[in-house]
Lab assay of single mutants.
Amino acid sequence: EKIKSDFFELLSNHHLDSQSRWSKVKDKVESDPRYKAVDSSSMREDLFKQYIEKIAKNLDSE
């Protein structure tokens, strides 16, 4: 859970929106230790998708 929250924090530093693509974001964040803390690339992508869904819901509710 800490790894997930750290990863979300990392993503939040990059001002993403619901149109952001993992392939582009990954290049910007892959040197960060919070990125490396997530064991697998599929898990990183899953967390990215969860984060994008979360910010999309937040935008819808505003």
Rank of each mutant, 00 (worst) to 15 (best):
R44K: 05
I3K: 10
H15W: 05
S42W: 08
D60R: 06
P33D: 09
L47K: 01
I55S: 11
L16T: 08
E9T: 07
Y35G: 05
K28M: 13
A56R: 11
H14Y: 15
Q19I: 07
D46K: 12
E9Y: 03
S42A: 14
R34L: 00
I3T: 08
S42C: 13
K36H: 09
K4G: 02
E53C: 12
E53F: 05
I55H: 13
K24C: 15
F8S: 02
K4H: 06
Q19K: 15
K54M: 11
K36I: 13
E30T: 05
N13K: 12
D27Q: 12
D6L: 02
V25P: 01
L16K: 02
D60P: 11
N13I: 10
L59D: 11
Q19F: 11
D39Q: 14
D27A: 15
N13F: 10
F7A: 00
F7S: 01
K36D: 10
D46Q: 12
S31G: 12
A37D: 03
N13D: 15
W22G: 02
L59A: 11
V25I: 12
D17T: 13
S23D: 15
R44D: 01
F48E: 03
D46R: 10
D27T: 14
S41D: 15
Y51R: 02
A37F: 01
L16P: 04
K24D: 15
F8N: 03
E9K: 10
E62Y: 13
D6K: 04
S40H: 05
D17E: 05
E30C: 15
D32W: 00
V29G: 00
P33I: 05
H15F: 06
E9M: 05
F8I: 08
S12Q: 09
I52E: 04
Y35V: 04
F48A: 04
E1S: 05
K36C: 06
L16I: 15
D32N: 01
K57P: 13
S5W: 07
E53L: 08
N13A: 08
W22S: 01
K36L: 11
I52C: 08
K2F: 04
S18K: 13
L47A: 01
E45G: 03
F8L: 07
K54T: 12
K4Q: 06
E9Q: 06
E62K: 15
S40P: 08
Q19E: 14
V25E: 07
K4Y: 06
I55R: 10
D6P: 00
S23I: 13
L11R: 00
S61A: 12
S5T: 14
S42N: 14
D46V: 12
K57L: 09
